[in-house]
Design a protein around this nucleic acid. Sequence first.
RNA 1: CGCGGGAUGGAGCAGUAGCAGCUCGCCGGGCUCAUAAUCCGGAGGUCGGGGGUGCAAAUCCCCCUCCCGCACCCA
Length: 487
Amino acid sequence: MARGIPLLVTTPIFYANAAPHVGHAYTGIASDVIARCWRQQDRKTFLLTGTDEHGQKVADTAAKAGVTPQAFVDQQAKVFEHVFRKLDIGFDRFIRTTEPDHIAGVQEFLQKLKAATTPLGRPAVYQGEYSGLYCQGCERFYTEKELVDGKCPLHNTVPQQLVEHNWFFRLADYLPIIQKAIAKNELKLIPTTTKQEVLGFFKQGVQDFSISRERVRWGVPLPWDPTQTAYVWVDALPNYLTGVGFGKDAKHARNWWRGDVVHVMARDILKFHAVYWPALLLAVGEPMPSTIVAHGFFTVNGQKMSKSIGNVVDPVDLIAKYGVDGTRYLLLTPFPFGQDGDLPVERFTERYNADLANGLGNLVSRTTNMVERYANGVVKLAKAPKSLAKTRKLTETFQFSQALADIWATVTWANQAIDKARPWDLAKGEHATDAKKLAALLAELVAQLKEIAVAITPYLPETGATLTKCLRQKKIVKAPPLFQRVV
RNA sequence: CGCGGGAUGGAGCAGUAGCAGCUCGCCGGGCUCAUAAUCCGGAGGUCGGGGGUGCAAAUCCCCCUCCCGCACCCA
């Protein structure tokens, strides 16, 4: 990722059907850390997030709630946006797929797709048939697996075999190109397990997919066939383009889409992003994204997170208890980004107190207090003994837990340095050199804290800002607790 | 032969060849600048089992056992 070119970072757009949970927060925070890390280096960076609001499921849920789909998604979008703001996710745009400019952009995208010819000289879009089990009551198709005793789980009726005429995308003709791009890392898949998984998709074979639905009304109409609406993914994926202006402000769109494009997501939607999306882009003549980053899923206290178990973690609850930065820290710390792992919620308080309150927080307290008391708030400029340049590299390469571990190693180092040097003795000034030693120590500690402040800013933006401000005072005074202990 | 992820001191995790590490907890000691915070020391692991390759394996190869996700939800 070259510094000079603009960077577009995206989260998936979240399906408006349900409430945001800690998984959404995780993806959002990770994306935000990347964006903030580059912004800190003055790179032009755009962070895009939003909600995916079309589809049968949304329509169903709205109907159940007795409201129109639009009213329902308006409410849901507000909730998602609010939670993301609370998490300090510094997005540049929150896109909604029901916005007029997105819909127009998708239609333009679809037109281009319809007009496209594959590398093998065939039309990229063709008419085909989809046949499946359709429940009249639900107005949707079911797969065999979803049925209970061969009946619709909601209506307890036997669905009928129905044939639907759809438009299909000739994915097959693009697969070799994409596979090659991935193999050669022109389209980077991170971490490496992600690459293996995607190459596995190609081995197993991927089928052409239908880009339209005949019976779903809550969606974007196909421009050339208004009896059909766009398949939700074909509506959702182009948000990455429309979000930066495709279909409305071509110049703006080009500016961001021709730079580095990093899509962040969880593994479950990897196939859509690493196979379908690049193919669609190739078809309409747009460049593929440069990087796809997939993270794992987590269990909560060792158990799968699910509604039926009732252990779904609400990020808002975490924020209430640990603050925004505490939450960001606790979510990114437990296991390496990219892998599956466990969220030890039971031990969050312990971790919060140990690392944030007693660790960094107390270090800041004792340091600033000594600077105030022993040096009248003034220290010379010094070089931080422990460089955190490596930490930034770790952040840029999505190794968040390691980067944080690195930063906290310097916190430990500083605490040790203080105990070793015994500044409280030096302050008594029994030897002529004591004052010098003391001044040097305090200067180093302040320099180190400044370095830490910079390094944590992408992760803990609020704390980073507070700390920086506190250390830049003309006369440093004892800082109020950075993190309140949690009982 | 479905796909994938795991098995490392009491708990949770790093570590893909070179004397087995981190956090928390536990035991003992020190300090007093600090958010009853901090620092030092200690106990505790034959790295799931078996076999193989290597001067050297938690780390590579083969076999086996066990756990978890691929169901609602959904990052």
